[in-house]
Design a protein around this nucleic acid. Structure first.
Length: 738
DNA sequence: CAGCTGTATCTTTTT
DNA sequence: GATACAGCTG
């Protein structure tokens, strides 16, 4: 045996060796779950002589997948390329590429992200004459996504989520949207999960093929899978039942995108006789940190309950900082980084700064830059979200899949070629009448009466450019293709001339970086058994997670959301913004499930820390331009003082020693009250009430519609004799004595 | 058709 | 406070 079992504790060993039948591993934070999974795969291959091609492992990020793969290869000194390991989305995409025919798609299908979906929905809305006043494409995108994550179709959706207005239009939108995507030979993120299930249902022989292939299935982060993912897993494993899932109900933080915690709670009902292993020894965090985190999460009702313990020393207490506002919070972060570096000899990459929302990073980034501290932001504005990158990617997508209408529309008049919206609409109409793709219609633009010869020439010129590159696609190396496309389509020139020098340089450099990354991908693909072509490059780029884009080896402080931090660990963790409204985040509707998820989110954040944990809150914070008073998070009241070193002012509103239980209860009440539509200030919103508005001056409320934050308030402003309809949430009206 | 300007809308977390 | 979009003008 090439690997050493002494690195595993008793429970871990049993979990590794129980290879046959369903296995549920409940793995607390820092309990060596990744190690257990890694050993299990190694054990299957090395000891049980299972072929790597018969194993499917699903992880939460591609980064985790790659690391796990490398570790297994090291353990058993073997090449395990035929093993399938990746995220749900990438595994599903891989199956769909192979089986595209059976679904009536072509193998080179495009993958639509939220942006592309929104574009497609705009078209759907205008075709179906759906009011833009009442619904935004974004809203509908949300609805469709939620529906798909639950594996619901319009007909059963109606029963599940009655919503009077949506009831009418949603089925049409759904069907039309799917048609548009099909015509574009495109699938959206959610389709990637749904289509394999449809396929398995419709073609049992295809299901059998994959069920036979994946004799052993392993799923990580099982607490965060949604219903569609659950069905996918269940179908694959139903027959052989060699399924091993690992998860922790206390770390379920994706309920908002359809993750269903009951999947893990009910695993042994789905797979009776499942062996259950509990990993409760924590190897990561000093005891103070662990106990503090435990004392927070134990307030949740929705859990199976387990008690994490550690042999590690108590360590330092958790330092809690009070700050005046987010600027001083950022300064405190920098101070702490300096302190950790000088007194404990830490380096930048030992330290992570976590926050609830991406916007919070800005202020911290500014302060880090002023102090010459190198940092990396995970997520936020991503490399692949930059305009210049999306532009070139859209060109490449059209070359690979000319039916991709959303991408085609993006590039047809960019850089400007004098082909405006009207012209595109005319071509589109022609395409619909003749039932051909938009791209093919461009090739036949001379047949469209309403388009002049001069305009037709511009279209043909564009059409020829693309056609030329489609022909080159299989002859030219992908890197060269992208490079010459970037210049011949005029992208490089556009960016060189259109912006100021600094901007121009960075945009051109980014394009160059994208081209380089194609080269790197092709090299890598040759080594692994991925197809070394543009289509698979585009797929990889589409399915990249935020964490995948993070260079953890760079010597830099890491900034990210609490969500992104899942699965990671750092010697020093600093969590900012522990205030009511932020952690837990205030929504316009509050329920207990959401509060519990917020609590788990903090739990995840705290348990990332190995040695030192800092928590901080501010007394006021700028949100939407204006300062707002804030109260320390109710979760702070849940941590016993013995684990804390509170550095607050004497005047602080946060007095850990006094009446913490009452303070906490009050905050919970407020959380639920403010969440519902009625708050104290609502009393001022009545017809006839004189009000003041920053820009419009004095006025009087003349009408009210709806309620809650979205209440529409019609005001007559005296000074300019204006009547304005305002939305309560953004109006910032204040009452005036009459 | 292109570019400008004022206005509406909006801030959760992500594959 | 930022951005996306509609609407207007050249």
């Amino acid at each position: 045996m090439a690997f050493n079992f002494s690195e595993l504790n008793d429970v871990q060993q049993k979990a590794v060796k129980t290879t046959e039948g369903p296995v549920l591993i409940l793995a607390g934070a820092g309990s060596g779950k990744t190690r257990t999974l890694t050993y299990r795969i190694a054990y299957l291959i090395d000891e049980k002589k299972v072929k790597p091609s018969n194993i499917l492992a699903v992880t939460f990020t591609n980064k985790a997948a790659n690391e796990m793969k490398e570790r297994v290869e090291k353990l058993i000194e073997a090449n395990i390329q035929p093993l399938w390991i990746g995220t749900f989305h990438s595994v599903c995409a891989r199956i769909l590429r192979r089986e595209a025919d059976a679904l009536g798609y072509e193998r080179n299908f495009s993958i639509y992200d939220v942006d592309d979906q929104t574009q497609a929905l705009k078209k759907v809305m205008s075709s179906l004459n759906i009011s833009r006043q009442l619904y935004t494409p974004k809203m509908l995108q949300n609805r469709l996504s939620r529906m798909k994550n639950k594996y619901l179709y319009p007909q059963n959706y109606l029963e599940a989520e009655g919503d009077e207005e949506m009831r009418e239009i949603l089925p049409d939108i759904y069907n039309y949207y799917q048609r548009v995507l099909k015509e574009s030979n495109a699938l959206d993120f959610d389709d990637l999960l749904i289509k394999p299930i449809e396929l398995f249902n419709r073609k049992p022989e295809i299901l059998k093929k994959y069920a036979d292939k994946f004799k052993y299935v392993l799923i990580d982060e099982y607490q965060d899978i949604n219903h569609a993912q659950y069905l996918f897993v269940k179908k694959l494993a139903e027959e052989h039942k060699n399924i091993c899932v690992v998860g922790d109900e206390d770390q379920s933080i994706y309920g908002w995108r359809g993750a269903d915690i009951t999947n893990i709670l009910n695993f042994n009902q789905d797979f009776p006789d499942a062996e259950i292993f509990k990993l409760e020894e924590n190897y990561r965090s000093h005891n103070n940190i662990l106990q503090a985190a435990n004392s927070v999460v134990k307030n949740n009702e929705d859990r199976m309950g387990k008690q994490l313990w550690t042999q590690l020393e108590a360590g330092s207490k958790i330092i809690v900082y009070e700050n005046d506002d987010e600027m001083s919070e950022a300064k405190k972060v920098v101070e702490t980084i300096h302190d950790e570096m000088y007194t404990k000899k830490r380096s930048f990459n030992d330290i992570a700064i976590l926050y609830r929302t991406n916007v919070q990073s800005r202020v911290i980034e500014d302060e880090l830059r002023r102090n010459a501290i190198t940092y990396n932001v995970v997520g936020g504005i991503k490399f692949y979200d930059r305009k210049e990158i999306k532009d070139l990617l859209a060109y490449l997508r059209v070359i690979v899949n000319p039916a991709d209408t959303v991408s085609l529309k993006r590039i047809v008049n960019f850089p400007l070629r004098g082909i405006g919206e009207t012209t595109v609409n005319r071509i589109e109409k022609f395409a619909e009448e003749d039932e051909i793709s938009l791209f093919d219609a461009m090739g036949r633009v001379d047949e469209i009466q309403k388009i002049s010869a001069a305009m037709g020439n511009r279209v043909i010129e564009f059409y020829n450019l693309i056609t030329q590159f489609i022909k080159l696609k299989d002859k030219l190396d992908p890197t060269e293709l992208a490079s010459s496309l970037a210049s011949e389509a005029g992208l490089i020139n556009h960016y060189k001339t259109e912006y100021d020098q600094y901007e121009a340089e960075s945009r051109v450099a980014n394009i160059q970086e994208l081209i380089n990354s194609i080269g790197e991908f092709i090299e890598r693909a040759d080594e692994t058994n991925i197809e070394a072509n543009l289509a698979s490059f585009l797929e990889e780029v589409s399915l990249l997670t935020d964490v995948d884009q993070w260079n953890d080896r760079a010597n830099a402080v890491t900034l990210m959301t609490l969500h992104a931090a899942k699965g990671l660990e750092f010697p020093v963790v600093y969590i900012t913004g522990l205030e009511m409204g932020l952690i837990p985040l205030q929504r316009n509707s509050a329920d207990l499930k959401e509060l519990e998820e917020e609590r788990r989110l903090l739990y995840v954040g705290m348990t990332r820390a190995e040695q030192n944990l800092y928590l901080s809150y501010t007394n006021r914070r700028r949100r939407q331009g204006a300062f707002k008073h804030t109260t320390p998070s109710l979760f702070l009241d849940e941590i016993p003082v013995e684990y804390l070193d509170v550095r607050s002012k004497d005047t602080s509103q946060y007095k850990p020693r006094k009446n913490r239980k009452n303070a906490r209860r009050k905050k919970i009440e407020d959380y639920f009250e403010n969440g519902s539509s009625q708050d104290d200030a609502d009393q001022m919103y009545k017809v006839g009430q004189p009000v003041y508005h920053e820009t419009f001056g004095k006025g009087e409320i003349i009408n009210l519609e709806g309620n809650g934050d979205k209440m529409k308030i019609t005001v007559h402003f005296e000074d300019e004799d204006l009547v304005k309809k305002l939305i309560k949430k953004y109006a910032n009206l204040s009452p005036v004595e009459s």
